[in-house]
């Protein structure tokens, strides 16, 4: 499946199933990101399918 990080700045192929596994694989701290699957927000236990579009968005923004 394709995983987009921060609005497509990085676009990588990955084979993990749950959102939690994907973040672990990418060494991303779950407290710092939101994950959307096919443009819908999901929590970390969500199981992702191969054809899904997964997006990881940083929650950090300077004021």
């Amino acid at each position: 499946m394709k995983v987009y990080i921060d609005r497509g700045n990085r676009n990588i192929e990955i084979t993990k199933e749950s959102v939690q596994d994907i973040l672990f694989e990418l060494k991303i701290n779950p407290t710092t990101v939101l994950v959307s699957v096919n443009n819908k927000l999901v929590d970390i236990n969500y199981k992702v399918k191969q054809e899904d579009k997964v997006e990881i968005l940083s929650v950090i923004s300077g004021g």
Partner: peptide, 9 residues
């Protein structure tokens, strides 16, 4: 911050 981001999203 994550909760605010979710609300904003």
């Amino acid at each position: 911050e994550k909760e605010v981001a979710i609300y904003a999203f």
